[in-house]
C-alpha cells in the first residue's frame, strides 16, 4: 500500500480585490469583491514507502500549499489525502507524530537555547521513550555531525549548521515520512552538497520517505528518483528524472564556430528544420528536434557545406528541460480560477 495517496486535491484561497481610485476605495467599504484563486487545482499522485521525490515548480505554482496540506497544516478545499492511513488535517496530532517537517525558511528550534536543549525538548514533546530517544540522538549526532555546535545557541549557528540541526529535529521521533520545503534555500554550495548527501543517507539508512520542494534543480539531480512538476496548481509532469530528460531531450541545440562567415538565409535554405541564430558572424546557435533531424546528419550537412572550426552539442540542463515543460503547458504562476461552476468569480460579504 502506498504511503501517501492524494486524490483530486484542491485548495482555493479568496483574495480581496481592491477597486481603483477614491471612488473605488469608498465602494470597497460597502461591497468587497473577492477573487477565488486555485493554488492547487485537482492534484493526484501517490507515494510509495522509501521514495525520494522532488517537487518543483515556479513561485506560486502551488508547491508549498501542497506540502502544507500534506502535513495537516492546511485544510483542503476539496479532494482527499490518505497519508499513513490517516487524514492529515482531520487527525493532525496523531499524524504529525509520524512525520517530519522542515521549512527551510523557519526553524523549529528554540532560537535562544543550545541545540542539544532544543533537541531534548523535542524528544519530550514527541514523547519519545528515553532509551529510544537517546539512541536516535546519538545516531543523528553522528549522521549530521552535530557535535561541533551541539552546545551553541541556535541564533548563533550558520545557516548550514542550522539546517543540519533542523534536520535532526525533524528526524528525532523517527518519522516515516519527511517533508522538506526548500531545505537548501539560502545555503552556499558546500552546505547544499552536505544537506543533499545527508538526505540521501537518511533515506538509505533510515528508510525515510522523502518529499522535498526546491528551486534548485541540482537538489533534484542529486537526490530525486522521481520528479513531480507543478505549474498553475496542476501536476504537469510526474515521472523519473531520466524520462523527463529524454522527453525534453528531443529538443537539442548545437553551438557552431566557423572559420568563415556564412549567411543565415543560405543555412535556413539548406536545413529548413533547424532554427538558427547568430551571435556574431563566426558563431551560430542551432535548435532542432532529434526526431526530425538526427544530430549526426546535422553535423554532416554542416561540415559538408561550411568551414567549421568547432561544433558543441551541450546536454540540455534540467533548468532548460523544466522551462520547456512550463512552455508546453502554457501557464505560469497562479491561475485565477473562475469560482466553481465557471460563473463570475466575484463574491461579496
Amino acid at each position: 500500500m502506498p504511503a501517501v495517496v492524494v486524490d483530486n486535491l484542491v485548495k482555493e484561497f479568496r483574495r480581496f480585490q481592491r477597486r481603483e481610485g477614491l471612488a473605488g476605495a469608498v465602494k470597497d467599504l460597502f461591497r468587497r469583491d473577492y477573487q477565488a484563486l486555485r493554488a492547487v487545482d485537482g492534484v493526484s499522485f501517490s507515494i510509495e514507502r522509501g521514495e525520494r521525490i522532488g517537487y518543483i515548480g515556479p513561485n506560486g505554482a502551488g508547491k508549498s500549499t501542497t506540502i502544507k496540506m500534506l502535513t495537516g497544516i492546511l485544510t483542503p478545499t476539496s479532494g482527499e489525502i490518505a497519508a499513513l492511513g490517516l487524514s492529515p488535517h482531520r487527525q493532525r496530532k496523531q499524524y504529525v507524530r509520524r512525520i517530519g517537517v522542515v521549512f527551510g525558511q523557519r526553524t523549529q528550534l528554540w532560537w535562544d537555547l543550545a541545540v542539544v536543549e532544543s533537541l531534548k525538548l523535542l524528544l519530550q514533546i514527541y514523547e519519545v521513550p528515553r532509551a529510544e530517544g537517546e539512541a536516535r540522538l546519538a545516531k543523528l549526532r553522528e549522521l549530521l555531525a552535530l557535535d561541533e555546535f551541539l552546545h551553541t545557541p541556535v541564533r548563533k549557528l550558520s545557516l548550514g549548521q542550522r539546517m543540519r540541526a533542523d534536520l535532526a529535529a525533524s528526524l528525532l521521533h523517527g518519522p516515516e515520512l519527511l517533508f522538506l520545503d526548500e531545505p537548501t534555500i539560502g545555503l552556499d554550495l558546500v552546505a547544499k552538497d552536505a544537506i543533499r548527501a545527508l538526505l540521501k543517507r537518511v533515506n538509505d539508512e533510515l528508510g525515510t520517505t522523502i518529499l522535498l520542494t526546491t528551486h534548485d534543480l541540482r537538489d533534484i539531480e542529486a537526490l530525486a528518483q522521481r520528479v513531480m512538476v507543478i505549474d498553475g496548481g496542476k501536476i504537469v509532469y510526474d515521472g523519473s528524472l531520466e524520462q523527463l530528460r529524454d522527453e525534453a531531450g528531443e529538443e537539442a541545440s548545437a553551438e557552431i564556430e566557423l572559420l568563415e562567415p556564412a549567411s543565415l538565409e543560405e543555412l535556413r535554405r539548406l536545413l529548413p528544420q533547424v532554427r538558427f541564430a547568430q551571435d556574431n558572424p563566426l558563431r551560430l546557435r542551432a535548435q532542432f528536434s532529434k526526431r526530425e533531424l538526427p544530430a549526426a546528419q546535422l553535423l554532416a550537412r554542416l561540415v559538408g557545406s561550411l568551414k567549421v572550426a568547432d561544433i558543441a552539442l551541450p546536454e540540455p540542463s534540467i533548468e532548460e528541460v523544466i522551462r520547456r515543460i512550463y512552455e508546453k503547458t502554457g501557464k505560469s504562476a497562479m491561475v485565477a480560477a473562475k469560482a466553481a461552476g465557471g460563473g463570475a468569480a466575484a463574491a461579496s460579504r
Binding site: T71, I73, R92, K93, V101, F103, R106, Q108, I125
Partner: peptide
C-alpha cells in the same frame, strides 16, 4: 507564517 511550525507538532 511560522504558525506552520507550531502546527507541525503533535499537540494542540
Amino acid at each position: 507564517g511560522s504558525i506552520a511550525v507550531a502546527l507541525s507538532r503533535p499537540v494542540s
